[in-house]
């Protein structure tokens, strides 16, 4: 799986929520795009990730 441009290996079947929590993210602080499509927050618990997925994990940073 490609996460923010880095190769990641999924140990076992994981939902977006499982993956984010295992990586240390707070769910309310990030937005996720899977293969170019936004994953709505309400689907974090049901949306599954696969090794072929391209995932972007985005959040706010300082900016003008």
């Amino acid at each position: 799986m490609l996460v923010n441009g880095q190769e990641k290996t999924l140990g076992s079947e994981a939902t977006v929520k499982d993956f984010l929590e295992s990586e240390g993210y707070k769910l309310h602080r990030v937005v996720v795009e899977k293969n170019g499509v936004i994953v709505p927050k309400k689907n974090f618990e049901t949306e599954k990730l696969f090794e072929t997925d391209k995932v972007e994990i985005i959040w706010f940073v300082g900016g003008g």
Binding site: G5, E23, Y25, R29, V31
Partner: peptide, 17 residues
């Protein structure tokens, strides 16, 4: 206050919010 969107830091550390 304005903010920008970027890839999140690994580990979810140091969030501006």
């Amino acid at each position: 206050a304005t903010l920008a969107l970027r890839r999140a830091n690994a580990g979810g550390k140091e969030n501006i919010l």
